[in-house]
Write a protein that binds this DNA or RNA. Sequence first.
DNA 1: CCATTGCTTGACCAGCTGGTCAAGGGTTCC
DNA 2: GGAACCCTTGACCAGCTGGTCAAGCAATGG
Lengths: 182, 182
Amino acid sequence: MDFAAHRFAAGGYHPTSVAEIVQGLGVGKGVFYWYFSSKEELLAEILREAQLDLRRAQRAVIAGEPDPVRRIEMGIRSSIDWLDANRHLATLFQFAATETRFAPILRASQELTHNDLTQHVKDGIIDGRIRDADPAILTLAILGVVGNLTRAFLATERARADEVADTAVAFCLQGLLGPGQA
Amino acid sequence: MDFAAHRFAAGGYHPTSVAEIVQGLGVGKGVFYWYFSSKEELLAEILREAQLDLRRAQRAVIAGEPDPVRRIEMGIRSSIDWLDANRHLATLFQFAATETRFAPILRASQELTHNDLTQHVKDGIIDGRIRDADPAILTLAILGVVGNLTRAFLATERARADEVADTAVAFCLQGLLGPGQA
DNA sequence: CCATTGCTTGACCAGCTGGTCAAGGGTTCC
DNA sequence: GGAACCCTTGACCAGCTGGTCAAGCAATGG
C-alpha cells in the first residue's frame, strides 16, 4: 500500500496501472484483487489511512495545551511536519480533491479537522485574543497557508520544515502588517 | 476548448476521453486532431490560456495603484473574482499541479505571478508597512489563503465572492490577532 | 469546369486497462 | 494420508483508449 501510494504520487493515479504496481511488488495480480476489491478502493484506503494518521499527529500534539492560540500554533506545526514527512501523500490529497470520486472521502476527515480548528478559533475570539471575524473563514485561511507553504516550499527543498512552520505561524497570527498597525 | 475544459474539470482529465469531447461537440474525431496534436496538448493549451487570462486580470486591476499594500489587496481581490468566475479552471490548475507532465506548464506562469507579488511585498517592507520577514514565504502564504478560500468557499456557494475577498484581505494583512496585539 | 486547398468525417487499429478465474502451492487440522 | 482452507499465480478477456487515415465535401481561383 505504501509502495502504491508512492507510485500514484509519482506517476499519477490513472496513468499508474495495477499491473505496474504488482510488478513492482513482485507479486501476481490476483493477490492484489484478493486484498482490494478494485484499484479505486486501494486509493480510497490509502487516503483514509493517511488522513487518520495526520489527524492523530495533530491531536497528539494539541492534547496538553489549554490556550487556544497555542493550540492553533501547535496544530500548524504538526501538520507541516507531517506533510513534510509524507509529501507523496500530500500530492495524493491534492489529486483526490480534483476527482469527484475521491473528493467525498477527503471531505469527511477534512470536516473534522476543520471543526476542531474552528472551535479553537472561536475560543480565541471569546478570549478576545483573536479578532472578531467569521471563524470558518479564518480556519480555511489557515489551512490554505499551511497547504500552500508546504507544497511550494517543501517540494523544492528551499527550506527546513521548522523554518517554514515558523513563518507560517507568524503569518497566521500577525498577517503581513504585524502588530501595532492598522 | 471551453467545452473540453468543463468536461475535464467535471469528470477528470484521464477519465474524459477524446471521443466524449468530440461527441459532445457534435463533430468528428478527425477535426480534433486537426487542431490539436494530442489530448495532452489540448489541456496544456487550456492551462496556458487560462493562466494568461488570470494574469491579465491581475495586471489590469493593479496598474494604476502605486501603494504596494493596496496593490497586494487589489491582486487578491481580482484573483478571487477571476477564480470565482472560472471555477472549472481552478479545478484544472489543481489537477495539473499533481501531474508531472503538466506541472511545468503551471510553474512558468506561477513564477511570474510569484515574482510580481514578491516585489510588492518587498516594497512594503522597505516602506516599513509590512513587517520584516522572508518576502517569498509571505507571498506563498498569501497565494495559499487565496487558493484555499476560493476552493472551499466558492465551491460550496457558502458566500459571495466579494465577502470572501474581504475576509481574505483582512486575514492576509492582519492575521488572526489583528492590529495592536503581540 | 476542373484542380487545389482546407476542413471534416467516422470506421478502424494496436495497445493497454481494470478485472476474472481455473489452477496450483503451503499449512493446518483431522 | 488427505481434505479443507487460505493465499498466490499469471494467462486471459472484453472494453475502451488515444490516435490514424482514406475518403469526401465545400469553397476558392484560374
